[in-house]
Amino acid sequence: MPLVTVRAVVLQSFAYSETSKILRVLTAEHGAHALVAKGAQRPRSRFGGLLEPFTEGTATFYVKEGRDLHTLTGWDLLRNRQGLGRDLVGFAGASLLAELVLRFGTEDADPRLFEEVTAAFDRVLDGAGAQCEATVVAAAWRIVVLLGFAPQTESCVSCGAGVSADQSAPFDPSGGGVACLACRPGRRTLDPVSREELRRMLDPGGETPNFVRPRVQRDLLRAFLQHQLAPERSLRSLEFFEEQLAE
């Protein structure tokens, strides 16, 4: 039963029995895990307020082979993100990013995914307000790419022919990317500006664009997630995120 100490971020936290909590965390070197923090709900618990969603820390836990739930023994705070609760769009957006990882992340180590998720939480926290929507949408696309669901943007999803970047192109969410005008399997057409914004969002080192048509990018992300990642059970946080943007 090895003891592991690793950087981790809390994606979800809920009560377990009278006094404990179950955490679903993403770690830098051990992927996504569920941990039980015994006694975390006691008034004088050593964990106190450390195990809140989006909080980052150095977690120490026992890994039990063949078990899904490991026991947390220590948590040293690295980054407190309580401020996400003080901005509704930011809170909804961070919840969406967390849900993406919770639904589709695995126990396989992926340091790039960990860095992207934690950096995205920071960007959402620091950039609350007008730019928050673009920050969340861009982070969601990058997480989608890291989870292995990247959309095809340079060639037709039906025939494989190249689709020039400077032209409008149909986007087929069920096919997983753009199509050529000859195939046109999808009804949704992306203009060149929106295509360029999407390309920049998919670039791991790219800057978050200022959306010319935010609604187009939001609809595109929703349609892609719906068809490619969550066809049977929609992402709960996405609906809440869109509701907050509409307010």
């Binding site: 809140e52 003080r86 509704l88 809170f91």
Partner: peptide, 13 residues
């Protein structure tokens, strides 16, 4: 908590 805080903010609005 983060969620309690967001709920309070929502009600405040």
């Amino acid at each position: 908590s983060v969620e309690g805080e967001a709920t309070a903010l929502y009600l405040h609005k």
